[in-house]
Design a protein around this nucleic acid. Structure first.
Lengths: 237, 237
DNA sequence: GTAAAAAAGATTGCATACGATTCTTGTGCA
DNA sequence: TGCACAAGAATCGTATGCAATCTTTTTTAC
């Protein structure tokens, strides 16, 4: 598979650190499922696509491998991660542990401006759900993740925010692999409920709603071991 | 300051990935406080010390920067991180959020073998506390962190384990900068109490003890803004 | 004597080069 | 036909070189 078509142009911004710009671009592509799990990301190809040397491409891939979005094998290269059911469980166990508390923290600091941002985010989610087609679906997935990241940013803890960025990105991969249906509408209504609780200042409720929300997302997964994961792995699919 | 004396030889193991071996070595040096916050880690110097090219040294420094143990400034280089009081608060807020739940998870999975490992770990802590001198003190700090990492490994979640590795390492930096006294003896008795609760299977107690323990560690910090952090920063101290 | 300016030196950012490893393809033999 | 093996291509790991940037020292002007 040629990955060229799945990557948007990197023309924008970021004269500060090109590797970081490439990482962001690739991460978006992975989270949006434009790059399927298992896809090979060769240093040379990435470098050519973004018009940089292998050195810079390699740095970007190393960053993604730290985030768990890319798996690197020595002398073989980098591949879009293909999380196992066990890894998937761990991702959601981590979220169950972190996000309710994070939501409580956010509830204690949320401002009117934040609420407005949440409302805008919910609107965007709703818009993409109403639309049809694969592009809207990708945007919907991304918007759904962005809701959780917005909450993390409101909590005001940069470290937890980074952890959540990783967990949300990996969740997207997991859902791509093991998701049964589109829980989107359901998820959207739950997001709306969380914002409502945030606005009313009921932090305990926010926390509980968040926990249930995560449970619902995970409940939609089919984490039974498939017939051919080893084969898929072997074939880089 | 010449960092050569603060680094142990890298003769060991790891023909698999040299950058990773260098990262581990540097991380130990930072956590052990052999490398003070603010110390410059130039690519050339690190490369020479470990007998690799700047390419490999750079990769190791990049890893450490992802872990928050090293801060890199464009065109200026890498420095051992110098966490601000605000960052210190965030490190401990993160631990308060994660570790009680992690302890509960560990409690649900702990085996007799694990308990034995905990006992051995406690013995080691006690031994270093009894000893005198800076070397014993460093080992004591490391052993104290290793207790928390052991607990994380027992919980059986690789993702949370990695988060904890980062948080424990950064805590060590924070304590080096803002620690008031040696809470070591106090911390050791609390560790002992946690293991006791683990053994008795009282998971709720384990969680509560862990929360108090973290609170105690943080209570020993003096996070008031110092007179000259800006100056220290400017002078790379 | 002090402060600004310029030059020298050191360090990083990035590209490229080369050996080593892995993957692919084609050939010979059973 | 099917399999083992070897040559070739592709890719990775790492060292090194050059330009750009930053730091330090020296020079120069006031």
């Amino acid at each position: 598979m040629n990955i060229a078509d799945q990557i948007y142009s990197a023309a924008d911004s970021a004269n500060q650190d090109r590797a970081q710009a490439i990482r962001d671009n690739l991460r978006d592509a992975i989270v949006d499922r434009r790059l399927a799990p298992g896809t090979k990301l060769s240093e040379g190809e990435v470098g050519t696509l973004f018009d940089v040397s292998r050195t810079v491409a390699r740095a970007a891939l190393q960053m993604l491998s730290f985030e768990g979005l890319v798996r690197t094998e020595r002398n073989r290269g980098a591949f879009v991660a293909n999380p196992s059911p066990e890894e998937a469980r761990q991702v959601f166990a981590s979220r169950r542990l972190i996000e309710p508390g994070l939501a409580t923290a956010a509830c204690g600091r949320v401002t009117a401006t934040d609420i407005a941002a949440f409302r805008a985010q919910l609107d965007e989610e709703g818009r993409f759900i109403a639309e049809r087609g694969p592009t809207a679906r990708r945007s919907e997935i991304k918007a759904s993740g962005d809701f959780h990241l917005l909450l993390a940013s409101v909590a005001g803890n940069a470290i937890l925010q980074r952890f959540m960025e990783e967990l949300v990105a990996r969740s997207s991969l997991v859902i791509a692999l093991y998701g049964r249906s589109g829980v989107s509408a359901c998820g959207h209504s739950e997001h709306t409920g969380i914002v409502g609780a945030l606005e009313s200042g009921d932090c305990g409720l926010v926390s509980r709603l968040m926990l249930h929300h995560i449970d619902h997302i995970e409940a939609d997964l089919d984490l039974r071991v498939r017939a051919g994961p080893a084969l898929r792995e072997a074939l880089n699919f």
